[in-house]
Write a protein that binds this DNA or RNA. Structure first.
Lengths: 232, 232
DNA sequence: GCGCCAATTCATCATCTGGTGAAAAATAAT
DNA sequence: ATTATTTTTCACCAGATGATGAATTGGCGC
């Protein structure tokens, strides 16, 4: 099943391995779990599948992470922190560079572009991760806690910045438009392949340049239109 | 050999009558399954849970629907047809009424508003259903087939109408912007409750009027901005 | 060389899973 | 009454699932 990832060299035998060949098994497990959870969701993956994909024993997963749900949380949290750091830095940089003259498109670009860049250059694990977040984002209840704790601070930061860029917009406008934005962004980042079929191959899910060329302008215009209507 | 449907569907002749006279047990099962699948996804629900929720024996589910996956498909398809009919009628009506002078916002409203109306007036099952579709929409691979077969025709219709409303937009623009639109729309319709927490209660997921007041204008402005950029 | 600790595997458990075949219940037609 | 037909229940299976405790092995301080 896993032709893409090289199978572990089958340590053949119990006990502690003779030498850490540089491969951190804990990370390997997280990688496998991430990929599988992204594709089939939490309940669609068994710990045995994760173990098989990672080339380890089932018990090792419990040794490192405890229950299955804790493994999932570990997968989710591993990249969340990196994401937040990157995003905050991007928005800091933009706000500083713009010297107080914020544009909605600029703010939105500073908020989204880090994700696109990471998806392009960060390795395949990130693509799985975004698909995972998109799924959690569209699941009622589920990530409520985790999602909230980890991503809301950055989102509030975005909403504040957009409030300065669009003084006419009410706070309700901003929150709702953010909901629209995050729906578009997550669907685009998760690369479901749906647009490939819909467009008969004209567009490809993996074409992040095409997304970049449109998404920022699209969302910014949306925010501005709603703000303008709110003013009148 | 084991057909998904009973051998002679309701010939109004002989045979044991439905236990709940008047209440169709088949529909009851679909309702329960819909609700559970919407909340926990396909793998997060067991046939036993569905049976318990519907108050029937597990075997009855297999008697009516066959395998679990077929039950899921039945849930998915039941409302898809209604949805498509309603949507096509709405777009027909709009195109006729506008007499060839299409606006992007008008087209988008004709495409989305039926869903909002149904969600408001169609009963709680529809809310579950939208949450379900949103999940499938954000799952890689999974709904590819079903989603494609059932919803793509209406979507193509939307894209064509938008192409007439926005002659400057390339076909790629239209497909990508549709991807953005559907991400926003599905997340809004699935009422995940995330915006309630994010906005500290200021906005409520269930406030469809708030969505209507913003989503059409938001998306239309997005399409127009992308089309305008494509032209220059 | 010894003892301790970390890492890894093995064997196994109790429970749950989707699914089935046969029987029972309930009516209509004969 | 008997039989045909449809719906519902019961009992059960073979395999999967999450999880655990014990066993095994290697490295490191001493």
């Amino acid at each position: 099943m896993n032709a893409a990832t090289p199978k572990k060299p089958r340590a053949s035998g119990r006990g502690r391995p003779s030498k850490h060949a540089g491969l951190d098994l804990k990370e390997t497990i997280l990688d496998s779990a991430e990929q599988l959870f992204a594709r089939h969701g939490f309940y669609g993956v068994t710990t045995r599948q994760v173990a098989a994909e990672a080339g380890v024993d089932t018990a090792l997963i419990h040794y490192y992470f405890g229950a299955k749900r804790e493994l999932f949380d570990a997968v989710f949290l591993r990249r969340a922190e990196i994401l937040n750091r990157e995003r905050l830095a991007s928005m800091d940089a933009y706000e500083k560079a713009s010297g107080g003259a914020l544009t909605s498109e600029g703010v939105i670009e500073a908020f989204i572009d880090p994700l696109l860049r990471i998806s392009e250059t960060g390795g395949p694990g990130w693509k799985s991760y975004f698909a995972l977040v998109a799924q959690v984002n569209n699941t009622p209840g589920w990530g409520g806690d985790t999602m909230h704790r980890f991503f809301d601070p950055v989102v509030r930061r975005l909403v504040d910045a957009l409030g300065r860029a669009l003084p006419n917009a009410s706070r309700g406008d901003l929150f709702w438009c953010y909901e629209f934005l995050t729906g578009s962004m997550m669907l685009a980042l998760s690369e479901t392949g749906r647009i490939d079929a819909l467009s008969d191959g004209l567009c490809r899910s993996s074409d992040l340049a095409a997304i970049r060329a449109r998404l920022f302008a699209y969302c910014a215009a949306g925010f501005e239109a709603v703000a303008a209507r709110s003013k009148g």
